[in-house]
Design a protein around this nucleic acid. Structure first.
Lengths: 194, 194
DNA sequence: CGCGACGTTGATTTGCCTCAACGATTGTGG
DNA sequence: CCACAATCGTTGAGGCAAATCAACGTCGCG
C-alpha cells in the first residue's frame, strides 16, 4: 500500500523503522474510481495528495463555463492547491482523478503533528516543492518560446505514453488551446502516405 | 545588513541568538549596480538569492535571439534556477539586477552545512517553496483565462507601483506579448479627454 | 552633442479561436 | 446484449487578437 510512497521518500532521505511506522500511521490511502472529485472550488483544501497509481488533474471553470486544466500529477508526484493549504483559504480549483487511482493523503489536520514527530520530512517536502517549482520555471520557458503547435509536439515527444492515457480535450486545455485546434494539428502530422 | 532577511525568516519560524549568528555567518551580502548579471545560461547556478532591496529578474534568449523575461523578484522574495541548484545542471536562464540592489546569497557550497547547523531552516525553505509554487499555480490560471490585454490590466491594477519601476519591454515579455502591443494597450487606456 | 536604448504608431499578416455540423466511441439502462 | 444517449473527436468557414515589420520620436548618458 504505502511502499510507493516510502520508496519515494527514501530516495531523498533515509528512514528508520520507527519513522516508517509513524508515516504509515499518519497517511491515509484512497482507492478512487476515475473522475472522482476530491476538491471543489469554494472549499478549503484539506490535504496534500501523492499519486501512488493513476493520475490526478487540477482544473477550474473559466468565465464562459469551460473547464481549464492547469496541472496533471502521475505516479510519484504530489498535487494540491498549496495556497489554499498554506493560508487556509478557499480554493479556486478542482482536483479530480483522471483514471482509477491509488492516492495517499497527508491531511492538514495531522500534518503539523507528523512534521514534529518526523522533522526529516520537512527536508523531504522542501525538496519536493523545490522540484515542483523548478518544473514550473521550465514550463514558463516553453510557454514563452514555443507556438502552441510546437508546444504540443514537444510535449508529445517528451511524454508519448502519458499523452495516450488522457483525453485530448484535457491535454489541449493544459497546453493552452482548444480541442479543435489539437485535432487539426494531429491531422497535419499524420499525413496520408500520399 | 541582514535585518531584512532575519525579519523575514522570523516571520515564519522563531530564531534564537545562536541561530541568528549562524545564519549571518553563512549568508553573503552583495551590493549590485543595475543590470549586473549574476547567472548566465550555460553556467551551473551557485546560489539562492534573497532580495533585501531592489529587483532581480530571470530571463533567457529565444530562438530569434530576443530576451524573454520569465520572473521578477522584489523585496522579500527568493529567486534562482532551482532545477540547476537541485540537480547541479547547467542553467538555461540568466539572472540580472533590474535596479541597484542589495542581495543576500545562500551559496550552494555552504547550504548543506548550514541546514545541518540550523535544521529549522528546512522548514523555512519548505514554506518559501510552497508559497512560490502556490503563486505559480495561480499564475497558470491567469494565463489560461485572461486575454493578453486583460492580463496586463489585471497586473497593472494589482502592482501599480511595481509597474513603474521596470522598463516596459521587460513587463511585456513577462506577460507574454510584444512591447509594441503593450504600447498600443496603453494608448487605448489613456484616451484623450476628448 | 550625438549615439544608443527605449517607446510609439501604422500597415499588413497570421495563428488560433469561434461556431456549427457531423462521425465515432463509450457507457448505461431496458 | 442491444439501442440510444452522452461524451469525445473531427472538419470546415469565417473572424479576430496579437505578431511582425518598418519607420519615426524621445530621452538619458558617455
Amino acid at each position: 500500500m504505502y511502499t510507493a510512497l516510502l520508496k519515494h521518500i527514501q530516495h531523498y532521505i533515509p528512514l528508520n523503522e520507527a519513522e516508517e511506522k509513524e508515516i504509515t500511521r499518519n497517511f491515509k490511502v484512497l482507492q478512487l474510481k476515475k473522475k472522482t472529485v476530491i476538491l471543489e472550488a469554494g472549499q478549503t483544501c484539506k490535504g496534500n495528495y501523492f499519486v501512488a497509481k493513476g493520475c490526478l488533474r487540477m482544473y477550474f471553470f473559466d468565465d464562459k463555463g469551460v473547464e481549464q486544466t492547469t496541472q496533471f500529477a502521475i505516479e510519484n508526484w504530489w498535487i494540491s492547491d498549496y495556497t489554499s493549504l498554506a493560508l487556509k483559504k478557499t480554493s479556486e480549483f478542482y482536483l479530480q482523478t483522471v483514471e482509477d487511482s491509488t492516492i495517499i493523503v497527508l491531511e492538514t489536520a495531522v500534518e503539523d503533528a507528523l512534521l514534529e514527530q518526523v522533522p526529516k520530512l520537512e527536508r523531504y517536502f522542501r525538496l519536493m516543492f523545490q522540484r515542483a517549482y523548478g518544473t514550473s520555471q521550465h514550463l514558463a520557458k516553453y510557454n514563452h518560446t514555443l507556438s502552441r503547435e510546437a508546444h504540443y509536439r514537444h510535449f508529445n515527444k517528451s511524454f508519448p505514453d502519458f499523452v495516450q492515457r488522457i483525453p485530448q480535450y484535457m491535454l489541449a486545455s493544459f497546453l493552452g488551446f482548444t480541442p479543435e485546434f489539437l485535432s487539426k494539428i494531429r491531422a497535419k502530422k499524420d499525413q496520408p502516405i500520399s
